[in-house]
Amino acid sequence: MPIIVNLDVMMAKRKMSSNELAEKIEITPANLSVLKTGKAKAIRFSTLEKICEVLDCQPGDILEWSNEK
């Protein structure tokens, strides 16, 4: 998939666990896992906004485009 989700990296930088992040951005841990493993087909702006707010980062820090397929 050309879009890579670097959520793990940002979470490690902020020393935040999956459950804690899921709780703060108000999504289920299962959905967060879908997002982290790159299985998600789309992300809502509202979810992205909350992630950026909680992790204090930019959307570009979480999402990355790669040319490799």
């Binding site: 999504i27 959905n31 967060l32 879908v34 997002l35 299985k39 998600a40 087909k41 789309a42 992300i43 809502r44 979810t47």
Partner: peptide, 8 residues
């Protein structure tokens, strides 16, 4: 539905 289910 699958697309909707995988929209986070």
């Amino acid at each position: 539905k699958s697309e909707n289910d995988f929209t986070i």
